[in-house]
Structures are given as structure tokens and as C-alpha cells.
């Protein structure tokens, strides 16, 4: 083992990673269903993570040097591994229960308007609810509501759906050259806003749509709004002077309904794209077509079970996850 490598064991699987790697990224190197869900962390955005608390795991052994377990569950996205560390994710009932608690709490003020939401089918929160959620909410109060606002003519904000992951704020800070939107107010009154209705006007501003884990920021140019699982994603590229030009086109029949960045298996964009590619190139002739996009197995689009409300398939058989999903199986009506 070289000096800058450390060994970490997650749910019984050992992996050797660079010193300084977070537990979450170590788990992503292992892959499969031991990867904790991440709603706020985004590997391409500096400073992201730590907020949603869905990625919490149990550190049952701190390190070879100091084997004491950590007293509390930790956010795997912001905790770096130590040599000899042992981590439990889906093998710890405590983690599964706490995560179910986080999911329940994340959903208490969420409108659950999936049937009319553009994001349905590619929403991280929807997936999360399916995999880790409770049967029904115990929240009996009115949900928080905000007015829908248009941020310029390209992007729409449905604040009701926002989970305050801060990804769009970091994106605007780090990808565009001037941020005009941010988080206003505090506590559960916090909202993403521009204060005055101001267009987010910048070459790369459209990327906030792709990083948003829920349907809070959506593409106003999405033509003939459609359920994503009725659309067919295809990878394509063009010679773009501003960005890499590598995108996914979402087709219905012969029409390009919208253009997004390509996403990796963890739902993160591979490369940020510019607004011209995203909003203005909506005909097949603008693009060189590559191949149908491979969709992550955990996505509702792939599962194709959205209508029948079955739990999502897991990649490898896993008893713990089955157990955690049992409640889902017993579900009769989702909302």
C-alpha cells in the first residue's frame, strides 16, 4: 500500500482509496447499493454537501490507530476516510431508520405534486422516497407554499419543491461569472430567490436546472411538456465555441423536447453546458447523434414501474435493502 492510499471497509467491502477521499466517494468507487444517497453533495461543486443529511452513515471503527466508533452518525459526503475505518450503511438498521427519518422530514413540506411535476421520473427525491421513505406521512399541517416565479424567460422556480440543497447557489457562484440569486430569509422560511424578478442572464446559468435534485428549477423552453418516461434520451454533440457541446437530447417522436447535460450514474452532470446548446438548439440538424443514453438502473425512467408503484429494482440482491423496502412493497396508495 502506497503512502497516500488508505483502506476503508464499507458494509463489509474493502476498498483502497486516495488519502483525503470522503466516505461517500469511497462508496461510489465500490458502487452498487451500498452507495449512500446524496441530495445536496455534488462532486463538481466546491463546498457542497453536509446539508440534506440523507447520506448519513455509521462509523463503527474510526481507524486502525484509533478504533473507537464515532459517537454520532456522520454525513458521508463530508467525512474523510481514515486508514482502517469501518463504515456501515445499509447493514446498519440504525442508519436505515435515521435515513427514513430524514426522508420523512424532507417530505413534510414537499407538495408531492409529482403527477404534474416536470421532474417526475428523474427526481432524486422521488427515488429517495421510494427507496427509503415511510408508508405515509405523519405530518398533518398545511404545507408551506410559495408563488411560482419566472427567473427570466428560460428558467422557472417552483420554490414549494425546493429542498434547499444549495447546489444552484454554488453553481451560480462557481460556474457563472455573477450570481444574482441566493438563499433569502432563514429557517424554514428560507427560499431561493432573486429578490427582485431578475433574469439570470449568463452563458452558463441554465446549469442550475441540471443540478437541481428536484423539480424546483425547470426549463421553461421544454417544449410540449411531457412526462420524461415517455421521452427518449439520446446522447449527441455539436461543435460549440462556449462549452464541450456534449449533451443529452430528449426526444418525443421526431421532436427534440429539451436539451440537458449528460449525467453520470450518480445523477451528476458530466460536463456543464452553455445556454445556447441548452435553450436554442432544438432541432436534430443542430446535432451529431451518438447513441441512446444509458439510464441508471435506479431511475424511475428505467424501472418503468412508476404507474404500478412497485419498488425500484436493486442492482444486486440485498436482504437489508429488501427489508428496508418492505414498507414500500406494502404500499397501496403512494400519495
Amino acid at each position: 500500500m502506497s503512502d497516500n492510499k488508505v483502506k476503508v471497509t464499507i458494509d463489509g467491502i474493502t476498498v483502497e482509496v486516495e488519502n483525503g477521499t470522503t466516505i461517500l466517494n469511497a462508496a461510489r468507487q465500490i458502487g452498487g447499493d451500498i452507495v449512500p444517497p446524496a441530495m445536496c453533495y455534488y462532486s463538481k461543486l466546491k463546498g457542497s454537501g453536509g446539508k440534506c443529511r440523507t447520506c448519513i452513515v455509521k462509523v463503527s471503527k474510526g481507524s486502525e490507530k484509533d478504533p473507537r466508533p464515532m459517537p454520532k452518525l456522520v454525513a458521508s459526503c463530508r467525512t474523510t476516510v481514515m486508514d482502517g475505518m469501518e463504515v456501515q450503511n445499509i447493514t446498519s438498521p440504525e442508519v436505515l431508520e435515521a435515513r427514513a427519518g430524514v426522508v420523512e422530514i424532507l417530505l413534510i413540506n414537499h407538495p408531492l405534486d409529482c403527477p404534474i411535476c416536470d421532474q417526475a421520473g428523474e427526481c432524486d427525491l422521488q427515488d429517495l422516497g421510494y427507496e427509503h421513505g415511510l408508508q405515509k406521512t405523519r405530518y398533518e399541517f398545511e404545507r408551506r407554499t410559495f408563488e411560482r416565479i419566472d427567473i427570466g424567460d428560460k428558467i422557472q422556480l417552483h420554490m414549494n419543491r425546493c429542498i434547499l440543497c444549495y447546489r444552484c447557489v454554488y453553481t451560480a457562484d462557481q460556474i457563472t461569472d455573477s450570481r444574482v440569486h441566493g438563499v433569502l430569509n432563514r429557517g424554514d422560511h428560507s427560499e431561493i430567490s432573486t429578490y427582485i424578478e431578475q433574469a439570470i442572464d449568463n452563458d452558463f446559468s441554465g446549469n442550475v436546472i441540471d443540478v437541481c435534485p428536484v423539480g424546483a428549477l425547470t426549463d421553461r423552453t421544454f417544449r410540449f411538456k411531457n412526462r420524461v418516461w415517455f421521452t427518449k434520451p439520446v446522447d449527441a454533440h455539436r461543435n460549440c465555441p462556449t462549452c464541450s457541446g456534449k449533451v443529452t437530447l430528449w426526444y418525443k417522436g421526431p421532436d427534440v423536447l429539451r436539451v440537458t447535460a449528460r449525467k453520470d450514474q450518480f445523477g451528476e452532470v458530466e460536463e456543464f453546458i452553455c445556454n445556447t446548446c441548452r435553450f436554442e438548439k432544438k432541432s436534430t440538424s443542430d446535432w451529431a447523434i451518438e447513441e441512446p443514453t444509458r439510464i441508471s438502473d435506479t431511475s424511475v425512467i428505467a424501472a418503468n414501474h412508476y404507474e404500478t408503484l412497485r419498488p425500484l429494482p436493486v442492482i444486486r440482491p440485498n436482504e437489508e435493502l429488501r427489508e428496508a423496502n418492505k414498507k414500500e412493497l406494502e404500499k397501496t396508495v403512494k400519495y
Partner: peptide, 21 residues
């Protein structure tokens, strides 16, 4: 506590309001 939560992390942001209600 509901009033004073900064709102960054979900359990506190949403949970404190739930407790209060």
C-alpha cells in the same frame, strides 16, 4: 428553536417547525 434555526440542514429546518406545530 424553530424561529432560530438557520435552515441549512433538513432535520432541524423542518423538524423544529413540526415540533412547534
Amino acid at each position: 428553536y424553530h424561529h432560530e434555526s438557520c435552515g441549512q440542514c433538513s432535520p432541524c429546518r423542518e423538524g423544529t417547525g413540526w415540533l412547534e406545530k
